[in-house]
């Protein structure tokens, strides 16, 4: 039995002549929080709509819990809850009525509404018309609608859009809770890596419809090769000494220089070499690119 909640195999999708998803092979393990990252217009929302069968994929390219989506639409959707783009809500109904309507459609006991409203912190506005909600409140209501049926798989498209910092933290904690305590699988899309790296266990990076990276957060970190950053009293002399001794300088400017990190012993030897050649070393240490720069590097390559 497949251990994957979502699997796409060479998924390609186009709107007319414009290809929006190119040969996408995504694998979302069960129980993971999969951060689906990419700049605006990268194809994230289109992919999510394909996963929900809102856009029809070619056959045998999308599998939800191991079942092909087109031939198992209803049984797949029964196991999913989703928030796609801006929340889809009826403005003339109250927040609670929006949830009751969903309960009617899904055959869920209406008592679940109060519980779900409490989870997203909207109990106080339950009887207010949803059309009068702020963007953040609408977003919470959208998440409540997605959570209502207690689905095994949640697809959240930029769920923190419009939320204030407290709201963002609450949603983040909610996602972690759902995945760890309730064993849910969550696919959460975002264009902000910083938001994803705090919660996600797995990451997929998409740009221009192509999946450029897929793996765990640790694997993403490991992509970034560490370097040794050296600050000295005479950068030019230090560079010359290192080059003369066959050491590759990957970056150099008037304030610092970087060479490839191999191990701590090698770093010590570099320090000794510079000091013996009358260069005063102010600082020396391992530097690793943060994920944000890594994300920009990856997405700028295609």
């Amino acid at each position: 039995m497949s251990n994957l909640a979502i699997e796409t195999v060479g998924l390609t999708y186009s709107f007319g002549p414009q290809i929006v998803v190119k040969n996408l092979s995504m694998q979302v393990p069960k129980g993971s929080i999969y951060g689906f990252l990419g700049p605006n217009g990268a194809g994230k929302t289109t992919t999510i709509k394909i996963l929900l069968n809102l856009l029809k994929s070619p056959s045998d390219q999308v599998f939800i819990f191991g079942k092909e989506i087109n031939s198992n639409r209803i049984s797949s959707l029964k196991r999913m809850g989703a928030l796609v783009e801006q929340p889809a809500i009826y403005g003339h109904l109250t927040g609670k009525e929006n949830l009751i309507n969903r309960c009617i459609l899904l055959g869920i006991n209406k008592s679940k509404c109060a519980e779900t409203l409490a989870i997203v912190g909207l109990t106080y506005a339950a009887d207010k018309k949803a059309g009068q909600y702020s963007l953040g409140m609408k977003q919470r209501l959208g998440i409540a609608l997605a959570l209502l049926s207690d689905p095994e798989l949640l697809l959240l498209d930029e769920p923190t859009n419009g939320l204030d910092p407290n709201g963002i933290i609450e949603i983040r904690n909610l996602m972690v809770d759902l995945a760890t305590k309730h064993n849910k699988t969550i696919l959460v899309s975002s264009h902000l890596l910083a938001e994803i790296e705090r919660t996600a266990t797995h990451v997929g990076i998409i740009n221009k419809g192509e999946l450029l990276f897929q793996g765990t957060i640790t694997e993403l970190h490991n992509l970034s090769k560490p370097t040794i950053k050296i600050e000295a009293d005479n950068q030019q002399k230090a560079t010359e000494i290192l080059v003369k001794n066959g050491i590759e300088v990957v970056q150099s400017d008037e304030n610092s220089l970087n060479v490839t990190f191999q191990n701590k012993e090698e770093m010590g030897k570099l320090n000794t070499l510079l000091v013996h050649n009358n260069v005063t070393v102010f600082s020396i240490g391992v530097e690793r690119k943060d994920l944000e720069s890594l994300f920009l590097d990856i997405t700028s390559k295609n």
């Binding site: 639409r73 209803i74 959707l77 796609v84 009826y90 459609l105």
Partner: peptide, 13 residues
């Protein structure tokens, strides 16, 4: 108005 076609069609109905 509520952009709710997408949520209707993503329900198991």
């Amino acid at each position: 108005k509520g952009d709710t076609w997408k949520s209707l069609f993503s329900l198991p109905l």
